[in-house]
């Protein structure tokens, strides 16, 4: 079930969108990198850690700022088109 619980500003949307895109990019890059390419591999691992932290920080900061509803079995989603935040509960 998808329930609208709030929204963020366009600037805030752009912040998470950039992090989201980077996370996707890193994940897809991870599929083609091997240990042999040490320098690039270490850079990737480091970046994945940093990006994950940024990603989580954004949700923590925003949920505190806007006091979004939460549930132990649910997660939040953002619609990049209109900046709306949803609480998604497994059916």
């Amino acid at each position: 079930m998808r329930k609208e619980i709030g929204s963020v500003t366009e600037q805030e949307r752009d912040e998470i969108k950039k992090i989201f895109e980077r996370r996707n990019g890193l994940n897809e890059l991870a599929k083609i990198l091997t240990y042999e390419n040490t320098e690039l591999y270490e850079k990737l691992v480091s970046d994945m850690g940093e990006t994950s932290s940024l990603f989580q920080n954004w949700w923590d900061t925003m949920s505190t700022k806007y006091q979004w509803e939460s549930h132990p079995d649910a997660h939040w989603e953002i619609d990049f088109n209109d900046c709306v935040i949803y609480l998604v509960t497994p059916e």
Binding site: E21, G25, L26, K43
Partner: peptide, 19 residues
Amino acid sequence: CDYIKSELFWRNHHWFDNY
């Protein structure tokens, strides 16, 4: 595509976040 991804990342190119 593999080369583009690697190069964007390696060069810290801003397109890595938007391609």
